[in-house]
């Protein structure tokens, strides 16, 4: 392996950085453009949480499925969904990932194994069980299987659908991983108010699943833990739960005044718990990559997002003919 302390090669580290930077830039740009009134509807930003999506998704290929949440942009980008198609979707344009019919909360790209962002909390978990079941049937005897990952927020982890899915996955021994993205809040309500048990590892144990908690702002911690639970699932070892403790940099949705946060909290998490800064410091500190190499990526990503926005603004709107298509395969 490489002559450095990381479990990824230099190229892989740069690729991970590019993914995380792309998510960050995408979300920060949406924040600005939403503020300008360019973007309709509800937009939930993933900024601050990038290390979780990327640390997990680097272990996956297109045949592995993920079921996402309302805060889905990061999952999409990490899973390889085209950024321009996503931007068009968020602008409600033709040529968007869902032809403008879904919007931010419903971006999907089945060809990439991205089964959709979701407007219904907890709804992804049973779907991921189904994806895992299909993967199990599909797998060749003695070969590793595809896996399915359900993302769920700390708040949505209290939905019956999620809890039932933990049990179902354990009962059927599915190649499923339940990722709890614990950013401390469900809308304005703190995690500790809405969830009686402190430890998701305990909760998983109660359902007969192995569980692990990691600092979700630490890319390497996520990468290693995810690698293990995903490997186990692929090899027939059954489902697991992975909790990522993380922070969100913006409001619950765009337009949220965030008065429920402690004084100075936002400044503090941006200064001290920024997963991108931590990652950058680690890889440049170990002299594996240089600042200049990262700046070059920053520059390219900026251009990518700029082009995506320009393309989204220029893309045509759907028309009356599009309104009634796609309801059924055949009717």
């Amino acid at each position: 392996m490489a002559d450095h302390p990381f479990p990824l090669s230099k190229d892989e580290l740069l690729a991970a950085y590019r993914r995380m930077r792309t998510i960050r830039e995408f979300e920060e740009r949406l924040h600005i453009d939403f503020g300008r009134g360019d973007i309709p509807g509800f937009v939930h930003l993933y900024a601050g949480e990038e290390a979780a999506a990327v640390g997990i998704m680097l272990h996956l290929h297109d045949g592995d499925r993920i079921a996402s949440t309302h805060r889905g942009h990061g999952h999409c980008i990490a899973k390889g969904v085209d950024v321009t198609a996503m931007m068009k979707e968020i602008y409600g344009k033709k040529g968007g990932s869902c032809e403008g019919k879904g919007g931010s909360m419903h971006i999907a790209d089945l060809s990439k194994g991205m089964m959709g962002a979701n407007g219904i909390l907890g709804a992804g978990a049973p779907l991921a069980c189904g994806a895992a079941l299909a993967a199990k049937y599909r797998a060749k005897k003695g070969q590793p299987s595809d896996v399915a990952i359900s993302f769920v927020g700390d708040g949505a982890s209290n939905q019956g659908t999620f809890l039932e899915s933990l049990n179902l996955a354990a009962v059927w021994d599915l190649p499923a991983i339940f990722v709890v993205e614990n950013n401390g809040y469900a809308e304005s309500t703190s995690r500790d108010y809405g969830t009686a048990v402190d430890s998701y590892v305990d909760r998983a144990a109660g359902f007969g699943l192995p569980g692990v908690t990691v600092d979700g702002t630490d890319f390497f911690a996520v990468y290693e833990a995810a690698g293990e639970v995903i490997r186990r699932a692929r090899e027939g070892g059954g489902p697991s739960l992975l909790e990522c403790k993380m922070v969100r940099f913006h409001g619950h949705f765009e337009g949220d005044a965030q008065t429920y946060r402690a004084k100075g909290e936002l400044e503090d998490i941006r200064a001290n718990r920024d997963c991108l800064s931590t990652f950058k410091a680690a890889i440049t500190g170990a002299k594996v990559v240089t600042d200049a190499e990262l700046q070059a990526i920053d520059h390219e990503v900026l251009g990518l997002i700029e082009r995506a926005v320009t393309a989204a603004k220029a893309a045509p709107l759907p028309t009356a003919a599009d309104l009634t298509t796609d309801v059924y395969v055949r009717y």
Binding site: E187, S188, T189, D192, Y193, Y260, R261, A262, K263
Partner: peptide, 20 residues
């Protein structure tokens, strides 16, 4: 209901939302 008051269990404003 969910967030009908808002800010529950947190260190910031109580009644932070009053519903979505």
């Amino acid at each position: 209901g969910e967030d009908i008051v808002g800010g529950a269990g947190g260190e910031g404003e109580k009644d932070a939302w009053g519903g979505v």
